[in-house]
């Protein structure tokens, strides 16, 4: 017997597909930001579903800070090949020339140049009028109020007081030249939903999410992985091998690992459900000051 009922995961999936199709149909040059993390992976799968049996009709863009975990890049290149994506990588070459790094320039400045600025450069270079991002509203308090379609002015700035009302699933897709929209198809997903979907869909994820013995140092109350020779050790720091995994992925010197033995998807989900800390705890950037995420968004961060 059919009950004509959808589970919450199915409903989220169908709603997100609707959003992705709407953007593809109404914008001239959409692009999907791919950050290699689990959320991006889910978003990419939803894009595949939105257009099957046709190919994804837009480019997929990765803004590379050059400080990502090596395993992330390996995973990315493999996935791009397997899915036959129309893929672009963007690196802020000015930043590379000036050797901008998280050690000498501080988290904020480094992130601003290699992420926020790089993203703006990439969007301008591509002439994109809509950019999909994998952000979720449950990630952080200021995100809770962001629209699914987030309007940005010519300078990529977000003005929380000047956002378009968003009713039903009727999205206003009109922008003037130079303006753009950031679109968040996963707005209504939670971290748990994302993992459940990864599990349901059997989606590949970067192995860093799974527990393994890795070389780490204790820094700022968290474990930082020594991913390559560029890692600068502070006086007294001695890399040690710990059984750790990551709840979120980013630039390795800024991403904290947690001690964990969860080496399968169900174990990860179980650990998360029993955990008493939110996922952003491992991200150093949010803890610089209260409201820091909001400040970054105003400047053009995703």
């Amino acid at each position: 017997m059919t009950t004509y009922a959808l589970s919450h995961l199915q409903q989220l999936e169908h709603e997100s597909i609707h959003v992705i199709r709407e953007v593809a149909a109404e914008f001239e040059r959409p692009v999907m930001l791919y950050s290699i993390g689990k959320d991006s992976g889910v978003m990419l799968r939803l894009a595949q579903k939105a257009f099957a049996p046709a190919r994804i009709p837009f480019k997929v863009l990765h803004v590379n800070t050059t400080w990502k975990f090596r395993e992330m890049i390996t995973f990315r290149d493999q996935l791009v090949k397997e899915l036959g994506l129309d893929f672009v990588e963007w690196i802020n070459q000015d930043g590379v020339r000036n050797d901008i790094n998280p050690f000498d320039h501080g988290t904020q400045r480094y992130t601003h140049i290699m992420k926020t600025e790089a993203l703006k450069q990439a969007l301008e270079a591509g002439g994109y009028d809509a950019a999909f991002g994998g952000a979720r509203r449950d990630e952080e308090k200021s995100r809770a109020k962001e629209r699914v379609f987030s309007f940005r002015d010519r300078f990529h700035q977000w003005d929380p007081k000047n956002q378009r009302p968003e009713l039903w699933n009727l999205f206003n897709c009109r922008v003037a030249k130079g303006e753009s929209i950031r679109v968040f198809p996963l707005s209504n997903w939670t971290e748990l939903d994302v993992w459940l979907y990864v599990h349901r869909e059997n989606l590949p994820v970067v192995p860093l999410y799974f527990a393994k013995h890795r070389p780490v140092v204790r820094r700022g109350g968290t474990w930082i992985m020594v991913d390559d020779e560029r890692m600068r050790l502070e006086p007294g720091e001695q890399p040690e091998t710990k059984l750790v995994r990551f709840r979120t992925l980013g630039c390795y010197p800024l991403t904290g690992a947690i001690e964990s033995g969860a080496d399968t998807l169900p174990k990860i989900i179980e650990e998360m459900l029993r955990s008493r800390d939110s996922e952003r705890q491992g991200r150093k950037i949010d803890y610089v000051e209260a409201g820091s995420m909001e400040q970054k968004k105003r400047e053009g961060y995703f």
């Binding site: 509203r137 308090k141 109020k145 929380p160 939670t190 909001e294 400040q295």
Partner: peptide, 27 residues
């Protein structure tokens, strides 16, 4: 549940904010 910095300082909520939680029955 309050989010934006300026609002927090004014002690008020001024926009639609979305919250998520689940029990064993529903999301």
């Amino acid at each position: 549940t309050d989010g934006l910095q300026a609002e927090r300082e004014q002690g008020i909520t001024i926009d639609v904010a979305y919250r998520y939680f689940a029990t064993d029955r529903r999301k």
